[in-house]
Design a protein around this nucleic acid. Structure first.
Lengths: 214, 214
DNA sequence: GCACGGGCGTACCGTACGTTACGGTTCGGC
DNA sequence: GCCGAACCGTAACGTACGGTACGCCCGTGC
């Protein structure tokens, strides 16, 4: 499977300047995709290529460092399991859905997923694993406690939290991510995201709500 | 949006030899990913590079021709709308789901989607549009008549066929495609595919079955 | 004041690969 | 049997880019 430890906090081992360089690389990655050159990164970051190679080894090292840097930026806000009723559970789920949709439709997420998918073919680096670890799996880690709490409060009814999560994932994302990755212009305004989040949550509750099972 | 006409039948305008060359290119694409070289294709297809350039213009031309060639291979078998009852509708949906899962987990689909995603960033060609047109949109074109027939037979209840389809799409695919594209080893045996197809169909019927609405 | 190390800018090297050019071979038409 | 066209194999060219080396500046410690 995927190797663990791909989501270490990088902000400690990286100096301020290095973070700035990685930010520049990230911006360039969003603009240019995988065909960004080391010279371009150096120019954008106002540093020398030699420094890039000294700090990150080679091109792949720079890329993985950039992806990990972006990954380390999103911090998890834990959810409180106190006083869970249907309203707060619904709100939580909608919140997760809307956050997730916002993430996968963001420019940086699309760019990062694009390069990771491209690199996943030739297994030179673990970009795919890193992105997966900080995307889909991070979401699962955050959402599963909520689902478990919902089950404990007898609001939800499911056997396996993993499959329940995957269903929620499918109901929220549907075809959005693959369409975006393939370059389709999906209209995702704030309003449609909110609507989709509500719809997905309602469908999920219809499938896994405790009162809906005979 | 996506430009139409991306799914023309290529088998008429291509000679036998050219099809063989494209098949070789396709195999190579599956093995090597996007970093296949013109020399490699020529060697594998036992043809000269000059011929490649004469026939397909340049590297991008060869790539798009290859993708279109693979796309033209899958032919649509229309579904009969006669005598639709719940059993046959369920069977149809399960069939669609299982076919779809088989497709997106196949080596060639993964490879094709990978290169298309990679190229979608820099808009040099329309690989993304082609893949989307013959993947997700082709599935919608094939499935929507079934959904409409189900509604006409009062087995299904939905307002918009598009949103109903997208829900089905999400229930079937869930996180499978993105995980595969990112290099995660998802275990997809014949059995799990069948199980997933059944589960997705049941969930879809639970959400959109006519008898489930009060 | 001065050595010095880290880092910037740039010139440079090697190579991989897209693209083109060319000689040799097969094959259909006369 | 001959001609030309299509095609194969390969050599050659140009370029883009990853990676390295070198000269210079500038801040810090003595």
């Amino acid at each position: 499977m995927l190797q663990a430890g791909a989501d270490i906090d990088k902000s400690e081992t990286l100096t301020e300047r290095q973070q700035a360089v990685l930010d520049a690389a990230l911006r360039l990655l969003v603009e240019e995709g995988d065909n960004l050159t080391m010279t371009a990164v150096a120019r954008r970051a106002s540093c020398s290529k030699e420094t890039l190679y000294k700090w990150f080894g080679d091109r792949d090292g720079l890329l993985t460092a950039t992806v990990q840097w972006q990954a380390s930026k999103v911090r998890v806000t834990p959810v409180d399991r106190k006083g869970l009723d249907l309203a707060s559970l619904t709100a939580s789920l909608e919140r997760f859905a809307s956050d997730w949709l916002k993430v996968i439709s963001s420019d940086t997420s699309i760019a990062l997923n694009r390069v990771a998918v491209g690199h996943a073919g030739s297994g030179k680096d673990d970009l795919g694993a890193i992105v997966l670890q900080n995307g889909r799996f991070a979401l699962a880690r955050r959402l599963k406690p909520v689902l478990e709490a919902g089950r404990q409060a007898e609001l939800l009814d499911f056997e396996d939290a993993e499959t329940a999560f995957r269903t929620f994932f499918g109901l929220v994302g549907r075809d959005v991510q693959i369409r975006l990755l393939l370059g389709d212009r999906v209209e995702l305004t704030e309003a449609t995201i909110g609507g989709d989040a509500r719809r997905a949550t309602q469908q999920f509750l219809a499938l896994f709500g405790a009162n809906n099972r005979p």
